[in-house]
Amino acid sequence: MPVILEHLGKRFGDGAPVLDDVNANINQGEFVALLGASGCGKSTLLNIIAGLEAPTSGALEVPSDGAAFMFQDAALFPWLTARENIELALKLRGVGKAERRIKAQELLELVHLGTAGDKRPHELSGGMRQRVSLARSLAQDRQLLLMDEPFAALDAITRDLLHDELERIWKETGRTIVFVTHNVREAVRLGQRVLLLSSRPGRVVQEWAVTEEHRTDAGLAGQLTGVITARLREEIRRHAK
């Protein structure tokens, strides 16, 4: 079940439109990076896809069971351990107690945190928290996973590693991922497709395909990064006074 966005628009109150005529198709199992400068309504678009906000115009088709969501800060509940955070997601989904225990451990293993399950969020590093958060969003067991700049607050070393990790998990679980970022390298590193969103109003202005060669060839990836960055800057320059 793909995501289809048709002429999607959003404005808050009487203000200028945040999103205007957004068109995009996202296929089952695809990894799409949604790239844009600040104020392009990336997060708003994600919220609309997640059903947290309603569009003011246009139509969209999303999976009927909704979407899993991963936020920029891990947003783990500090009064629960890593394991309990994951179990809560399972519990709210209606998974039985015994199964919750098993499933949570599996998910912890999946993000390589099998031994850290009993730690509280404040005892974990930023990268570990984000991995717990990833495990929690996987616990929701939705085909569609929306990620709102989940690695933006991490240090570069951790981020690089989590890119590999996310790619691995995406391949293992076959999720459809929409990944919002303002980092061109990150978009090229992760997405199979990079959609560039213009700013004020947000609109998909161009898209690029990222191939397997880009994953292994830094030169090729660098070239694409350069091309996308140039296009992004063109968008930003439009707003110069």
């Binding site: 690089d160 590193r189 830094a218 030169g219 990836a221 660098g222």
Partner: peptide
């Protein structure tokens, strides 16, 4: 992009590719 192209093509562990 030129600066990056000139680097070694083999096993470049840059943030742009799988590391």
């Amino acid at each position: 992009p030129l600066a990056e192209v000139t680097e070694t093509r083999e096993h470049v562990h840059a943030a742009l590719t799988r590391t």
